[in-house]
């Protein structure tokens, strides 16, 4: 039972997070517009999100998904470590599998680090009111654009935000492909299509999220 339940939980929460990333990246694209358009649009969008009760439910589902994804991944890793107490003196695993598939835990740890910093940068400041007070724009909306823009004009944060999208891409590629198999999708041609979609999806997410801080920095 636990062999299936834990992996299924990782797959379901992972797929939900994959859907969330699409919405998140679409919204981030507003940052690519000229500042005068982007500021108003970005701030009114984030106000709509904060005030919509439906989005509140989705937000809680999101926090829960991240938490469950991490907890079950830890439980799975723990059992897996126990199942292989002795490692091989020589192991050429790169000849039979991808590096990403062998190191999902490490890639996930990088992403978790990213999420913690990301939440501290935005969620803690805007929703919890921690750190410097966030002002409002001309329309009276909380100026989330200013928070983003100032963050992406700090080269250290730009490097952090862009660089950590590389492990995200690898994690998403393997994760998306595997989630379908974990949940019992075994149609061969369908799985080949899923593999292609997973690659395209991972590239778009990784490059998309990774390039926006750079563009904002150099804009």
């Amino acid at each position: 039972m636990e062999l299936f339940f834990r992996k299924s939980m990782i797959a379901v929460t992972g797929l939900f997070l994959c859907l969330f990333l699409i919405v998140h990246l679409s919204a981030n694209c507003i940052l690519l517009l000229p500042e005068e358009v982007a500021r108003g649009l970005y701030n009114s969008y984030s106000t709509t999100l904060r005030e919509n009760p439906l989005i509140k439910i989705v937000a809680y589902a999101l926090y829960l998904s991240i938490l469950l994804h991490v907890v079950y991944a830890l439980l799975v890793s723990l059992r897996n470590k126990k199942a292989k107490p002795t490692k091989y003196a020589v192991n050429r695993s790169s000849e039979n599998s991808t590096w990403a598939s062998q190191n999902m835990g490490l890639l996930g740890a990088f992403i978790l680090l990213f999420i913690v910093v990301h939440l501290a940068n935005f969620w803690a400041r805007i929703k919890l009111g921690m750190g410097d007070v966030v002002g409002t724009d001309a329309l009276g909306n909380v100026d989330v654009y200013a928070v983003t823009s100032s963050l992406f004009h700090n080269i250290y944060y730009v490097i952090f935000y862009s660089f950590l999208m590389i492990p995200l891409g690898f994690h998403l590629h393997h994760g998306l492909k595997s989630a379908f198999k974990t949940l019992g999708f075994y149609h061969k041609a369908g799985l080949r299509l899923v593999a292609k979609i997973a690659l395209i999806y991972a590239v778009i997410m990784s490059v998309g999220f990774g390039i926006i801080p750079l563009i904002v920095y150099f804009k």
């Binding site: 039972m1 992996k7 126990k82 292989k84 000849e95 598939s101 999902m104 595997s178």
Partner: peptide, 22 residues
């Protein structure tokens, strides 16, 4: 059969794909 597989202490499948190559 899957319950016995779990009882024997084997790990979770994470679809690395190494098994089908070997």
């Amino acid at each position: 059969m899957t319950a016995q597989m779990a009882k024997e202490g084997f790990g979770h499948c994470t679809f690395t794909g190494a098994c089908e190559v070997e």
